Amino acid sequence: MPSLPTLKPGRPVGVVGLGIMARGMVANLKKAGFVVHGFSRTREKCADLIADGLIWHDSPGELAAAVDAVITMVGYPTDVEEVYFGDQGILGAARPGTLLIDMTTSAPSLAERLAEAAAAKGCAALDAPVSGGDVGARNGTLAIMVGGAEDAFEAARPLFEAMGQTIARLGPAGAGQHTKMVNQTVIAGTILGVAEALAYADKAGLDQSAVLDVIGQGAAGGFQLNVLGKRMVEGDFAPGFFVHHFLKDLGIAQQEAGQRGLDLKALKLAIAQFTRHAQAGGREDGTQGIYQSYLR
C-alpha cells in the first residue's frame, strides 16, 4: 500500500457532513493549522463556514481527490454508504494513500466493509465515532474511539488530537463502532435516570437547580446529569445530539447485542421511551428532550 500522509499544519483535510458536531470539529482543525475542505448536502447552510475560509466542494468525490485525509460525520449508515460508495463517492476519487476516517456512529459491519474497500484502493480507513456532544466538539475535548490498523491510527493522531482529549485505538476495523455501542448503551439508561430523578425532584417540591448542584458533585455526577440535566431544568431542549440520531444508535446497539445472545432490558426500555417521545413530536430535540415525557 502507498505510504500514508504526514498530517501536519498546512496540509489539506476534508470534512464531509457539516452538521452540529462537525462544525466544532472544523473549527478545531483550523485552529490546529490544517487547511479544511468541506462538503455537505446544502451549501446554503454552510455559508458562514465558507465565509470563514472553508474550501467548498460540490461532491464527496471532488473533495476526496483534493486532500490527504477525509473525515466523514454524517447521519445514518445509509449516508455513510452513499458518501463512500456512491457515484460521486469518496472511494471512487481518493488518491492512493489517502486516509479515510468515518466518525459517524454506524454499524460495525459497515466499518469492516469500508476498511476492506479502502485497502483495495490503496487507502486506509478508520472507524472513529466520538462521544462528548456539541460541547466536546466545540471545546476539542471529544472522546474518540478508533478501530483500524495501528499505522493508520498513528497517521491520524494529529487530527484526533486537534478534535479530542481522550483518544484510543480499541482494535481492528469495527472496534471503534462496537465501543460506541457500549457508550450509547450506558447513556441510554443514564439519561432516563436523570429525567426521572428530576421529575421526582420537581414533584417533591425541591429546587431542581439546587439539587443538581449538590448531587452533581457526588457519585451521580457526569455529563448527562451536570450538563444535560441542567438543560432539562432550564427547558432547553435544543439539539446537541438529535433524538432521531440517538434512536438510530440504540437500534444498532440492540441489533449487535441480539446477535451476541444478549437481552439488554434497559436498552429496550430506552428505545421504547425515546420512540414515544419522537412520535409525540420530539424527533428533532436533543436527547435531554426526553424529560418532556415526564411533564405530560
Rank of each mutant, 00 (worst) to 15 (best):
P2S: 12
L4R: 10
L7G: 13
K8A: 15
V15Y: 02
V16R: 12
G24D: 06
N28A: 07
K31E: 07
G33S: 07
F34R: 08
V35F: 02
R43Y: 05
E44F: 04
D48A: 12
W56P: 09
G61D: 13
L63F: 11
A65L: 08
A66F: 14
Y76F: 15
T78I: 06
E81F: 00
E82A: 15
G89F: 11
A94S: 13
G97Q: 05
T98Y: 10
T105D: 00
T105F: 00
P108Y: 04
L110F: 11
E112C: 12
E116T: 13
A118H: 00
A124H: 01
P129N: 02
S131Y: 04
N139F: 14
T141H: 13
T141D: 14
I144W: 02
A149D: 15
A156D: 12
L159Q: 12
A173F: 05
A175P: 12
G176H: 08
Q177Y: 03
V186W: 11
T190W: 06
T190Y: 05
I191W: 06
I191E: 14
A195P: 06
A195K: 05
L198V: 07
G205I: 01
D207G: 04
A210N: 05
D213K: 10
G216H: 10
Q224T: 15
V233G: 10
G235P: 10
F237N: 07
P239L: 02
F241M: 02
A253L: 04
R260I: 00
R260H: 06
L262D: 08
L267C: 13
R283S: 11
D285T: 00
G286Q: 01
G286F: 01
S293V: 05
